[in-house]
Simulated scan of single mutants.
Amino acid sequence: MKRRRAHGFTLVEVLITVFVIGVGLLGMAGLQVIAKKTAYDATQRTLASQAVQDILTRMRANAGVAGAYLTDDATALEAPASACDSSDCDPTALAAWDLYRWGRVLSEGGEVDDEGAATGGLVTPTACVLAGATTGHYRIAVAWRGITPLPPPEDADDPSDPANVACGVDAYLDAEGIDDYRRVLVLDAFVADPTP
């Protein structure tokens, strides 16, 4: 008697195929989540970079009172009495207005939704303009809360490491009291005093 050979897939082959495809789809979903987190972090860093460049430009345009731009957190500043929307604003009042607007842009992003609520901006930002080691040297820093934790700085005593800048320190603690969600962008800049 002649035996007939089975043709087509067996149930075991189908199950193995489904398993392999399922593992591949799960891997792709994981990559999608990582890509979205990375893109969001990149967007936050871009906004911080643009804001740092903006306040530096304003400081250089108002260089005679560059020291008036020093602040531990521009996002916590109250609106100045004068809006400085006209050209008759004095330099110190203009510096206060620039800092206030800078803090609002970082917090709110300048965008509103359909109900008028602020959208955009950084996640719980801290915006600082700190005095540098020499006259005319300023350290502009923007800190915000990241999505994923980062390792601590390699050398906690190295003043040149941006992670060691005081802006936003201990503002982004995790459940264990570690400040590993803090992101910070630092720009060291020189603003020349125009007076001889």
Rank of each mutant, 00 (worst) to 15 (best):
M1W: 09
M1D: 13
K2D: 12
R3K: 14
R5M: 05
A6T: 13
H7V: 12
F9C: 05
F9R: 08
T10W: 10
V12Y: 07
E13F: 09
E13N: 13
V14E: 05
V14Y: 06
V14A: 11
V14W: 05
L15Y: 02
I16T: 13
T17I: 08
F19G: 15
V20W: 10
V20E: 09
V20G: 10
V20N: 11
I21M: 15
G22M: 08
G22A: 14
V23I: 15
V23W: 09
L26R: 13
M28W: 15
I34T: 15
I34M: 13
A35Y: 15
A35S: 15
K36C: 08
A39W: 10
D41Q: 06
D41L: 00
T43W: 14
Q44A: 14
R45I: 03
Q53V: 07
I55D: 11
L56N: 13
L56C: 08
R58D: 04
M59K: 06
R60T: 06
G64H: 00
G64W: 00
V65Y: 00
G67S: 05
A68R: 01
L70K: 08
D73T: 01
A74W: 00
A76G: 02
A79I: 00
S82N: 09
S82W: 00
S82K: 00
S82D: 13
S82L: 03
D85H: 02
S87N: 02
T92M: 12
T92L: 12
A93Q: 13
A93G: 07
A93R: 09
A95P: 10
A95W: 03
A96M: 10
W97C: 11
W97K: 07
D98K: 13
D98F: 14
Y100V: 02
R101P: 11
W102T: 14
W102D: 08
G103A: 07
G103C: 09
L106P: 05
D113F: 05
D113Y: 06
D114L: 10
E115I: 11
T119K: 03
T119Q: 11
V123Q: 08
V123L: 12
P125Q: 05
T126C: 07
A127V: 04
A131M: 06
A131T: 09
G132F: 03
T135L: 12
G136T: 13
R139F: 05
I140N: 07
A143N: 05
W144E: 11
T148F: 03
L150N: 11
P151H: 01
E154P: 07
D155L: 04
D155C: 10
D158R: 04
S160I: 03
N164W: 03
V165K: 00
V165P: 00
A166N: 01
A166S: 09
C167N: 01
Y172T: 03
Y172R: 07
L173K: 12
L173D: 12
A175L: 12
A175R: 03
A175S: 14
G177S: 08
I178V: 15
D179F: 06
R182V: 02
R183Q: 13
L185E: 09
V186D: 04
D188G: 13
F190S: 10
P194V: 05
T195S: 10
T195F: 12
T195Y: 10
